[in-house]
Design a protein around this nucleic acid. Sequence first.
RNA 1: GCGCCCGUAGUGAAAUGGAUAUCACGACAGCCUCCGAAGCUGUAAGUGCAGGUUCGAUUCCUGCCGGGCGCACCA
Length: 545
Amino acid sequence: MILAELRESLGARARDWAKAAGAPLPADLPITVPPPKMQADLCLPWPLAMAKAARKPPLELAESLARSLTGLIVLEDARPSPPGFVNLRLSNSALCANLKAVTLSPQDYGRDKGGPARQVLIEFVSANPTGPLHLASGRGATLGDCLVRILRRLGRQASSEYYVNDAGNQVERLGLSLHARRHGQEPPEKGYQGQYVTDLARSFPAEADSWTPQRWQQEGIKALLATHREDMDSFGVSFDRWFRESELHVKDELKSTLRLLQDRGMVYEKEGAVWLGTSGAAESEDDKDRVLIKAGGTATYFLADIAYHEDKFSRGFAQCIDIWGADHHGYVPRMKAAIAALGHPPESFQVIIHQLIHLFRGQEAVKMSKRTGEFVRLREVVEEVGRDACRFFFALRTPDSHLNFDLELAKKQSSENPVYYCQYVHARICSIFREAEKQGLFGPDLPLPGPNGSFLTSPEERALLLKIAWFPEVLKDCEKLLSPHPLANYILELAGLYHPFYEKCRVVDPQQPQVSRARLLLCAGVRDVIAQGLGLLGVSAPEQM
RNA sequence: GCGCCCGUAGUGAAAUGGAUAUCACGACAGCCUCCGAAGCUGUAAGUGCAGGUUCGAUUCCUGCCGGGCGCACCA
């Protein structure tokens, strides 16, 4: 919380200064990390941004800004630095007070009191229930689940949802394929060829011999959906709701949505089909009109998708975020155009596109397709390399990164996975606490000390104190970027700062109980922030390993 | 052909337009009578190419080269 409060008080102080300087403060009041040589904790690049509007040399502005900030209690000092930065050093007591607050209630650390209260719905994975979940779903699942956790931590109202396409041609083909396999026949053209279809068809009792393809469709979806739930569950992902496309049809929402679009004048008929006329609009996202009802009279998948999103908004969600693989990125403009056609503000709908995973076995690329049955199941990989390593691997990278996943190296990589580096720090600190208790420096009757700024002054200790203070800002970065990767990288950096401290600063030392106990407080803060951070990524923080 | 994404050290990645570009793996040289060596210390190695905008560009713009994905009255 310390940086949020600091930003507020800096802003309040600087407002009068900015008026006198003749230029507005940068809108978001950026605070950055100065290079190590500067021997400062934080940096304000504000004068550089304001110099042009103020028509003054940036260094001169930095000097006057630094002067205007003197006297703030949390600041040790504020110094101008060429070409126009102001470097800040925080008082040790402020950093220690923050540390104490973290250890008192770790699960509240990072809550953003001033944030928006709107309801957010994040839809992700939403794989068709026509086959098992493959590895690619792991990336979207990690992204979505981590985001939901992080948004909730920030205090937002976030819900997760999995859309199940249990209507239409694809699932009909599944039913036909199962029926065919049950009777020893080949699946129909465009049916599902995978071995799992045969296995599934054979797994039902004798009565299934008389099932119709329609019945096979229902039972097949049910069974496959159950595996999706199991796989998500063992991956640490739970959804607030599994929304079935068939619910839309039961409630006749395709028709009502179409009517809504008609009433808004967005629809026309041409060549026997019904079209959504979005291409003409002044700021339309899409450059073509799209068919809603085919000439044959059946609805397109696009219309069902629009109805589904209208349903989301009607349930009170003010912001809808969809997470899609890059193979669907061409669908984004038309969906945005449709949201606008429904009359919703453009910013109420966002799509996170994540690039695809390319699978290899050694040098050889593995093609993935449910229809041919060639794919690698998420479950296999999770069983092989472990959920923690798998999730951390996905969480560490931006959604935009194209990543290769070599199955042969997966296991080897798992022992080299940076997640163990982070978990090791947690386990090591837990071990230190066990030792401290043995030595009588900590225990049920001897809780951690209060904040005391006169200890924890070495560079290694201050680096940790400062890093801990950044945690809430990192969560806000994740929200801004709609990605957990800043958090994963942050945990790695925090863990990296711990070992040098451990080497230089003896923690458990009965000869120096006061220093010892102050350091235990610091260890507790690191332990708690790592545990919280890993928890937000859906990764465990073991006490021993 | 058009559109989206990516090109950072040997490898994989990070960096709201900020100062000397971080981190891990790998390589090389060291460190366990001492709270966990899954660790630490040190060394070598990097922004695809060419322009532009800017006080300042890995970041923004243009072109080129290389790679991934997508361009249905399919779902």
